[in-house]
Design a protein around this nucleic acid. Structure first.
Lengths: 136, 136
DNA sequence: ATCACCTCTGTAATGATTACAATTTTATAA
DNA sequence: TTATAAAATTGTAATCATTACAGAGGTGAT
């Protein structure tokens, strides 16, 4: 589906800026931060303001177009796809997607409450860093 | 076990300040923040500095005496007990402990990496707020 | 007593995020 | 088209949790 149509279908007016931000997220699944997105787009959108990136992501979040993932005091964003967990390496800070079914982590113990979001994150040393780096 | 002995056993020299902070955590399992701990102790420890609370919690964290739980850009602390998940209400911001076995959320998909910490958090509207509050 | 080391303190800096008011753009109506 | 209202975008300033840092205070060993 075209970006404009998809935004429209989710209740977001598809301005040029919003489409560019959405498309950046669509093409980059490495959990970018506001800084990443702003840095990547500011050359081709010279008037872009960081506040606009914040505002747009907040809007996308409300409309459930993106998912927010807060790791070490910084928000990372990902377009909404299947539920999955995340592993972040304490050494290289890469965030890996980890397959996980939502049903698997939502059980009777929590269903007394109304769940709007589930976040499962692991931290540690990733496979790659274990093999190539000495971490003391 | 006495606080002093326990800190010592974990490699932390049991100064008076450290014991008081540890005991506060031991007696308050409502996931306090630095602000909470500082606010609660400053009357009986008039020279206490907020930096000391930060430093002490960082030390406790390294020695695995406490667990850090970052929710909406603020760190919350809990003395280490059994593994469990957390639910935070978007309305009243209370954090509930949710029973959950660690083995249940650590499976083959993530074990390629070396895991140091696992965090499973739910957000939504808690049972109490659903019954007593209209949330639009 | 001296010295080194650890603990604690207070202020200043950092850095992500939000508030806000102004400006620009877009949509709507006359 | 022009006027006007509404929405989107912008830049600056404020906020707030956390960290850096340098100095003060305490403790223990020799």
């Amino acid at each position: 589906m075209k970006t404009a149509e998809h935004l429209h279908a989710c209740g977001v007016k598809p301005s040029y800026t919003r489409m560019r931000i959405y498309e950046y997220l669509h093409n980059h699944h490495d959990h970018p931060t506001v800084e990443h997105i702003y840095g990547a787009l500011k050359d081709s959108l010279p008037t872009l303001s960081k506040t606009t990136v914040y505002n747009t992501l907040k809007l996308f979040l409300e409309k459930h177009l993106v998912r927010e993932l807060i790791m070490q005091n910084q928000a990372h964003y990902d377009i909404v796809t299947d539920f999955h967990a995340h592993f972040q390496c304490n050494n290289c800070h890469t965030i890996y997607d980890i397959p996980m079914q939502r049903e698997h982590v939502v059980n009777g113990n929590v269903e007394a409450h109304h769940i709007e979001d589930v976040q499962l994150t692991y931290r540690g040393i990733c496979r790659s860093c274990q093999q190539t780096t000495q971490v003391e």
